[in-house]
Nucleic acid binder design. Structure first.
Lengths: 219, 219
DNA sequence: AACCTCACCATTGTCGACAATTTAAATAGA
DNA sequence: TCTATTTAAATTGTCGACAATGGTGAGGTT
């Protein structure tokens, strides 16, 4: 593996976790010396981070970590709704038996851990990601897979880390996942898409409510 | 404007037009000398081209222009259907009066030139792009705008150039555009999305038929 | 005091060279 | 003749240095 790739992975993690805070201006000399690489390979990594939407850049000014915001988060939800809905429709037609059984075992494990104390919400979130991830893979559309798994999902993780977006509707989400899985297993793409879109749309609506409350408290 | 940016624009055009053929392996030394720039700035441009999906790369091997194929083209259609459908839904809520009037004047001009000889299909195609472009802008969702206008639409152009995808349903497309515009003007996002999805889905189905015929002829 | 200008500094853009890896060609062996 | 191994060439990855641009603050003017 190349140095630039390692650096890309390391920086991606730091950005997602907020160790490099969102909105922060990147100093190339500083980061380069910090990671003991030349500016060339750093810039290579930065360009990759820009291409997945974690950094933005301006000519002759440089890179910054993207600025997280409620508006941006909602944008992401709408794009996810569109793409994952389509992924679900295609998955209904293209999912392999292996993937389908993995999906069911995933849901089973999800169900069991849902019976544990509700305190460990981050576990739920990871399982949620696994579920969505698997369905996208099952679409067998490389472009959809790339957009969601290599780009959008890292943004989602970043918001969960830094906005503390723990779901207060884990049980409801599990139900919705089960319905989606059922539609997939009977090959009903149209229904699967509708259910996935509702699932994400509900999550967005819930998030919007939470954001409003928080902002109301602060003001 | 920076050298790398100019190079990016120049190479993008050459790739879209097929002057650099699809599937072609990029030789960095060759291209760098051809454009009189160093490999560093060339690699910068190549990274940008990769990020918009026109190039792919493998570590220690290098860049190649993407390989066009029927399968890939169909993938693009499905992603467009999802994203433009959503863009249309959002546009119904967010389009400005100015954009709406521009949309109508666009359709009017489209209608007039549709009455000309049908020989100039490429003009129709450009107007088609303008229509879709404007609606995406009207969604006012920056992420959707970026994905479609900065990435997918260049792929679409590339296929039109190199696969000679001239539509044999220009008149039908115009009707569909008018219906979409009407839904937008009355603010019916749900309908607008459905119509846009049908529009793109029909275009895909039509393309699939054409591809089948061509392959049948060749074999 | 506010604004403009200019010079300095830091940062980014670009370059050419070296190191590491892949590809191919050539050679040896079966 | 074909395969496997080694060797050489070419390509990519990485580096440090220079050029060009943007930001900052001091100084001067109104």
């Amino acid at each position: 593996m190349t140095r630039a790739e390692e650096l890309f992975l390391a920086l991606r993690q730091q950005i997602i976790e907020g160790k490099i805070p969102h909105g922060h201006k990147i100093s190339e000399p500083e980061l380069a010396s910090q990671f003991q690489v030349s500016r060339s390979t750093l810039r290579d990594a930065l360009a990759s981070l820009k291409s997945i939407g974690l950094l933005k850049s301006q000519p002759n000014v440089g890179y910054s970590v993207i600025q997280l915001s409620s508006e941006h988060l909602i944008e992401v939800f709408y794009v996810r709704e569109a793409l994952e809905g389509m992924a679900c429709r295609l998955a209904a037609a293209n999912i392999t038996p292996e993937q389908l059984s993995r999906l069911h075992s995933l849901l089973e494990s999800h169900e069991h851990s849902a019976q544990l104390k509700a305190g460990e919400a981050y576990i739920q979130e990871e399982k949620d990601m696994d579920f969505h991830f698997l369905i996208v893979q099952a679409s067998h559309n490389p472009m959809l897979i790339d957009l969601l798994c290599e780009k959008l999902y890292f943004l989602v993780r970043m918001y969960r880390y830094q906005f503390g977006m723990v779901s207060n509707r884990a049980k409801q989400a599990l139900f919705e996942h089960q319905h989606i899985a059922h539609a997939l297993s009977v090959g009903d793409g149209e229904l699967a898409e509708i259910l996935m879109r509702r699932h994400i749309s509900s999550s967005r609506a819930n998030t919007e409510r939470n954001l409003l409350n928080e902002e109301g408290v602060e003001s």
